[in-house]
Design a protein around this nucleic acid. Structure first.
Lengths: 234, 234
DNA sequence: GCCGTTCTGTGCGCTACCGAACATTCCGGC
DNA sequence: GCCGGAATGTTCGGTAGCGCACAGAACGGC
């Protein structure tokens, strides 16, 4: 149950990086980095889930990407220094490795496998954000909720998700009432059960059927990413 | 009137790359690369404008990013090989440099300034797509149209844009009628004048005032990008 | 067991946008 | 000068989501 990006490194790279890997437990809703501000650490989730969120001037937020144990935060900061254009929030608490950006940068600049892995990951991030952007535009709250639940479920240990409807609404960029309605409809249909911020997915299959095709595409992209980072061809 | 990414290279890098720079004139609406397919060339606009467009299974499209002489296509393909997750379409015709991906990759792997420039550019792309995603979700067709016009204008030679309302609708991911209505309202207010695919911007200032704040943010990000690629600190 | 807080449910009027159908205007080619 | 196609204009009913206001329900601390 490690992190795929780290697991894909060569032995030598891992030896160099290991002293800088700091195991941490991330608390729900913690903000790991803030829009525009300087990034000090990259986080490599092993058991937690992190959301990348765009924050508008009026405080409205929109989730642009999700990071589980297939990714990391701050990749672009590692590649270029400076800040990232998004806020990173812990969506599901749990274990992760924290690494100083400087250490990551040093390894990145060596131009080895770590660099290729991180670049491949950045490509996935761009694709993911494009897909979510299109989904935002086109699909109903109901469909998006299904996609959101599944994207969390794929990265979770069990069939449980911890998030209030208020929180989900903020991520999807819709009203809380809209989420209430969609969630209540899902519950009536027996796909999920929830209460006060705890959601249990009862029928993953039916949830997938109800979600828009964006979910399948996003999932496929993630699987390709994982395959690629382990591939000798990278 | 060159391309900023190329202009920021060192003399030595430019000497190596110059033999591979192929000046081309891009025709309006040409598709430079297609979603998912293998990318053979990167394009560095000098006088044209290119749109990065997400295409859904049903054919619906959504513009995720714009590229003028501050950027290039296929950056992520250069960094990692393989395809890009978006379609690139010529939005305004004109000159560009075409370069084989293999040549770009070779230069990228040297790990010099070109690499840092391209990475910095990828960071801008991620930020841009996040901003546009949020804008898609939140703002009215009218506001988005203003933003779209301005984003083209910034990269155009004069105050003219060539694009039918049908075309704009496809980029913004809205109905053609919605664009007709918004455009006609802008014309009545004296901000633009248009006819059959030719749009003239009459009052840039008022257009900016009417656009959502996304435009200013996107523009600021682009300006920072251009500043950074020329900066010695990169 | 009480109470404040957090979370969820519901109703209402409103607006922006959608989908479809059709009318009109303009341009370029013959 | 005529004609076909492309671009734009307009209308109409339908609906998803918004903003607001408030009601109930559950949990957590004391």
């Amino acid at each position: 149950m490690g992190n795929h990006l780290l697991a894909a490194l060569t032995g030598e790279e891992m030896r160099r990086l290991r002293p800088h890997l700091e195991p941490v437990t991330l608390q729900r809703r913690a903000t790991l980095h803030e829009t525009g501000s300087r990034v000090l650490h990259g986080y490599f989730p092993t058991e937690c889930v992190i959301s990348m969120v765009h924050v508008a001037a009026d405080g409205n937020s929109t989730e642009i990407g999700v990071i589980g144990n297939e990714g990391c935060t701050g990749a672009s900061a590692v590649a270029t220094g400076g800040g990232v254009p998004l806020r990173a929030v812990v969506r599901a608490p749990g274990a992760a490795f924290r690494v100083k950006v400087a250490a990551l940068q040093a390894e990145f600049r060596r131009g080895g496998r770590f660099q290729r892995v991180l670049l491949r990951y950045m490509r996935a991030v761009i694709g993911q954000s494009a897909q979510i952007a299109a989904c935002n535009r086109r699909h109903s709250v109901d469909q998006q909720l299904c996609r959101w639940l599944l994207s969390g479920l794929d990265r979770a240990a069990d069939n449980q998700l911890a998030m209030t409807q208020e929180g989900i609404a903020a991520m999807l960029g819709v009203r809380r009432e809209g989420v209430t309605e969609a969630a209540s409809s899902l519950q009536k249909a027996g796909l999920i059960r929830y209460s006060r911020g705890r959601i249990a997915v009862l029928s993953r299959g039916r949830l997938e059927a109800r979600a828009c095709e964006c979910y399948k595409l996003l999932r496929g992209e993630t699987e390709r990413l994982v395959r690629d980072v382990y591939s000798a061809k990278l």
